[in-house]
């Protein structure tokens, strides 16, 4: 219960930083997606049900402050989680580079998924030129923030749990 409450608080804190703090520090239209980094982490470390529900919730949080139709980021984050989870067993979870690569590619996939969903459901096909224009800078920015995220994590945790973020233990047969 404590961990769940901590997760909710952390998600709100990250959302607050993303929405209210970082736009004051970064150039216009350059916004990192901190919640997406959490989804990438969940894809490597949590089971299908809990990770899926948490990713959906994080997407719903982003929906409150982004886009015009509620649910778009919810399904996008869920699909990204499922993709990472499907491939998680094949990744080298010992490598810290993994989260950086995931942050980069998850941003690209997010752009593609949002474009596809808008094309299929919302008749907002004109969104993709906007997405294409910003996709690469945002992917690089998210990678940079993933690097900061890794730097902020205490080293003791890696040693104690064996491997990068304790992932090797969770995925060991």
């Amino acid at each position: 219960m404590k961990r769940l409450a901590a997760f909710f608080l952390l998600s709100l804190l990250l959302l607050f930083v993303q929405v209210a703090v970082l736009p004051r520090l970064l150039p216009e239209h350059l916004k990192p997606d901190l919640l997406l980094l959490v989804v990438a982490y969940l894809g490597l470390s949590r089971d299908w049900l809990r990770g899926g529900l948490c990713s959906w919730y994080l997407g719903a949080l982003e929906d409150v402050f982004a886009g015009s139709d509620f649910g778009l980021f919810g399904i996008t984050f869920l699909l990204i989680f499922l993709m990472i989870k499907t491939g998680a067993g094949r990744f080298n979870t010992e490598s810290p580079l993994l989260l950086l690569l995931l942050a980069f590619f998850a941003t690209l996939v997010k752009g593609m998924l949002i474009s596809a969903l808008l094309l299929l459901f919302a008749e907002a096909g004109r969104q993709w030129p906007v997405l294409l224009h910003i996709l690469l800078p945002e992917a690089l920015l998210n990678t940079l923030f993933a690097l900061l995220f890794l730097r902020c994590l205490p080293d003791r945790r890696m040693e104690r749990r064996g491997g990068f973020l304790g992932l090797s233990r969770e995925f060991s047969p």
Binding site: D69, G71, G74
Partner: peptide
């Protein structure tokens, strides 16, 4: 589980797209 969650998320998104009044939900 994955299929169920994707279906539920799609239904929620689709439902919200079609709402014309009171589009702000409780979570928001």
């Amino acid at each position: 589980l994955a299929a169920g969650m994707v279906l539920a998320a799609l239904l929620l998104y689709s439902h919200n797209l079609r709402r014309t009044e009171e589009r702000t939900n409780i979570l928001e």
